[in-house]
């Protein structure tokens, strides 16, 4: 009973804290100075149509590097903790006929869509993280359809390490080749505005991020499925 009163009290108090935003809230009518610079100068400076991508990959690229690192840490910790507690492998029921056929049909299409999303990250809504998550969802489908199939982490960790390493190398190349330094996207020509191969380094970095996030999330899913890494993919 006391517990319930405390829970109610806590929810009401949190609600009061958050509610204090509401009466004074007005939608902005103009952008703050920094964002206004991003929106007005961004397309000319970086050549990216999607300003969010420009902010994520270039203006605040260091944050994204940290974000990718945290995701790497999360997937490493998941692999570590699950691996320590490996118990005897129980046979699990295979997915139904419908699920298996559907997986065979959809798996390549979902992969293709994931790749489309991260390659077009600088033009349309989307990008490396979103594309990577879509690729991982294809792996989820695979795991659901064949829960007993062993998938090795070997290839996934090679893709992940290589793309992460190349990302940092390309970022460091900006220090030597451009004025603005680390993670500047202008070490490649900006190209024609709005075409696929434009915006300098942004599509390259987002492809690497997409591969890295995709393989990381896939290895999280495979680890959570609880299979050991006895066979290579």
């Amino acid at each position: 009973m006391v517990k319930k009163v405390f829970i109610l009290l806590m929810i009401i108090l949190t609600g009061l804290i958050l509610w204090s935003f509401v009466p004074g809230y007005e939608s902005r009518t103009a952008l703050p100075e920094v964002s206004a610079h991003y929106v007005e100068k961004g397309p000319e400076e970086l050549g990216a149509a999607n300003i969010v991508t420009a902010v994520v990959v270039t203006y605040r690229g260091l944050d994204t590097l940290g974000e990718v690192t945290i995701l790497f840490a999360a997937s490493a910790v998941v692999g570590l903790l699950i691996h320590l507690n490996k118990n005897e492998n129980k046979r699990r029921r295979e997915g139904s006929e419908i699920l298996r056929t559907g997986t065979a049909l959809l798996f390549p299409l979902i992969l293709l869509f994931g790749i489309y999303v991260f390659i077009n990250g600088h033009l349309t809504p989307g990008g490396g993280f979103q594309g990577g998550a879509i690729i991982a969802s294809a792996v989820v489908l695979q795991v659901l359809a064949y829960p007993n199939r062993k998938i090795g982490h070997g290839l996934l960790s090679v893709i992940e390490s290589l793309s992460g390493f190349t990302y940092v190398l390309l970022g460091a190349a900006g220090v030597f080749l451009t004025v603005n330094g680390f993670l500047d996207n202008r070490i490649l020509p900006l190209g024609e505005y709005g075409s696929l191969l434009s915006a300098g380094l942004i599509p390259v970095i987002y492809t690497l991020v997409g591969l890295k996030v995709g393989s990381e999330l896939s290895s999280v899913v495979i680890s959570l499925n609880g299979e050991s890494e006895e066979e290579q993919l």
């Binding site: 902010v55 974000e67 945290i70 995701l71």
Partner: peptide, 21 residues
């Protein structure tokens, strides 16, 4: 404003990591 959107993208990814953990 694109900046909160970029921040939320980061926050989603971190939240995903925490959820997996």
């Amino acid at each position: 404003d694109p900046v909160p959107q970029a921040l939320v993208l980061t926050a989603i990814v971190i939240g995903l990591g925490i959820t997996a953990f």
